[in-house]
């Protein structure tokens, strides 16, 4: 049987500000299956970003356990987490976070460079994914020569070029107008299905959740 991509068990996360301790996550249970296209929604401050950071291994849990594809990774060190992100995860940010000195092509190529993919193969993979996100012809542009929607498509290409196990997207459409947001969601979903990549998306946006196979609702640091 295939393991769930993500299996969170009573995950707890605290932030400390001075003497005060804020519990951002207070015992989250969550399962994400392979090829799920799932949303987390909830009011501001409910802990969506915190949960995503933990699922994306860019933040550590303070309690509970995290199994990724069946493997308990709660205790892994920073270097091992980096290796997992490098090989199996993609990220899409609200503000795109493209590297301004790199061309569209270079931005999308970067994760492959990290994975030591040979040059010819990199070229083929990048061209292919740029074609899929509809940016053929924009390869040599710099990010600042693109619209918001185009930039987010570059970010999607960058996240998906290595066909990862999981893509984490924190409010990927928050900066986009309705039509563009709609296109972006559809693009993510169709590519995710094609590549067998699971998506975990934080959003405020109900138009977004309509497209999702699963919707988790967060409230005060727990999934309702």
């Amino acid at each position: 049987m295939e393991h769930p991509v993500i299996e969170l068990n009573q995950v707890v996360k605290h932030y400390r500000i001075g003497d005060n301790q804020i519990s951002a996550l207070r015992g989250v249970d969550l399962q994400l299956q392979a090829r799920d296209f799932a949303a987390i929604r909830g009011p501001s401050g409910s802990g969506k970003s915190t949960l995503l950071n933990i699922c994306g291994l860019i933040d550590r849990i303070d309690g509970g356990s995290y199994r990724l594809a069946g493997e308990d990774i709660s205790e892994l060190d920073e270097a091992a987490c980096t290796e997992i992100r490098r090989k199996r995860m993609g990220f899409i940010f609200q503000n795109y976070n493209l590297v301004p000195v790199m061309s569209v092509f270079d931005n999308v190529e970067y994760p492959l460079l990290l994975n030591n993919v040979p040059k010819a193969e990199r070229r083929a993979l990048v061209s292919d994914i740029l074609d899929k996100v509809g940016l053929t012809g924009f390869a040599e542009r710099k990010p600042d020569q693109l619209s918001g929607g185009q930039r987010q498509r570059v970010a999607i290409a960058r996240a998906l070029v290595k066909a990862p196990l999981l893509v984490i997207a924190d409010e990927p459409t928050a900066n986009l107008d309705t039509d563009t947001a709609e296109h972006i969601v559809e693009l993510m979903k169709s590519l995710g299905h094609r590549l067998g990549t699971s998506f975990l998306i934080a959003t405020h946006d109900d138009r977004m959740t309509r497209h999702c196979d699963k919707v988790f609702s967060m409230q005060d640091g727990v999934i309702a």
């Binding site: 860019i58 270097a79 490098r86 940010f93 976070n97 590297v99 994760p111 960058r158």
Partner: peptide, 16 residues
Amino acid sequence: TREIGTLRALGAHPRE
């Protein structure tokens, strides 16, 4: 700094 965070999220090690 933010770019460093992005590259780290994408899987770059601090040494890289």
